[in-house]
Nucleic acid binder design. Sequence first.
DNA 1: GTTTATATAACATTGATATATATAACAATG
DNA 2: CATTGTTATATATATCAATGTTATATAAAC
Lengths: 121, 121
Amino acid sequence: MCNQNSCECWQYPERSWIQFLILRVLYETPTYGYQLLSEIDERSCGCHKLEPGSIYTVLRRMEEKGLLASTWEKGDAGPDRRVYTVTEKGAGFLKAGLSTMVRRKQLFDDLIGFYERRFKP
Amino acid sequence: MCNQNSCECWQYPERSWIQFLILRVLYETPTYGYQLLSEIDERSCGCHKLEPGSIYTVLRRMEEKGLLASTWEKGDAGPDRRVYTVTEKGAGFLKAGLSTMVRRKQLFDDLIGFYERRFKP
DNA sequence: GTTTATATAACATTGATATATATAACAATG
DNA sequence: CATTGTTATATATATCAATGTTATATAAAC
């Protein structure tokens, strides 16, 4: 099924799905928490709504782990924003996680196929 | 991106990924924990190895939640086996979860595409 | 006073780790 | 033959760290 038999990723990317989403977005465009909320909402077409409490907690913990770094910036309006960028470590984490996801793609597709066969309305 | 804007699934299927794998297998062929270990290992090509301690804990909790039901059966060899089947509630849970996964497919594919563009060796 | 923006304590869920138990089959030993 | 030890099969559970949610609080700018 897969083309590799080993898995160097130290954890299940499915478990930290949101962290990979966040890293993927920040990798291309560093931004701040409040913006990420709508960004992720948009990209997932409303299927992946996050509460503010979730995103800020996750962002803070990711910075503690050294996956992200932040600086304060003045916005056009409203209070200052904490802008996050992906660190080198964060990029490595993202790469390893996505690599595992790629290897799992067929397992994922199998689940989709199963749904179409058995449950599709 | 998605074709629906709402999400009736009460939780992220990514968070309980393994539970959906288990339900998907048991839905077609009821079996016991030890067998599930190799079944899932095989289907994921060794990318999704589970320790016995994980599968039995998950199975027990899924039965507590009413997603699975079990009966003891004698095997050809070795000790008796606890064979699990998917309950009606379990099937509904599986259907709802997979339905959400389908809606997330494009988000998933976007991550795969991102990997190919940015990281592929 | 509404929108924008961040913060955090407390919590439930999840799956992993480590460890324990028990049965059946089989070979070796006495 | 009977016993012993080993391996493969099979289940169980306590404890733990990671994860994301909930609820709530704070504050700046307009």
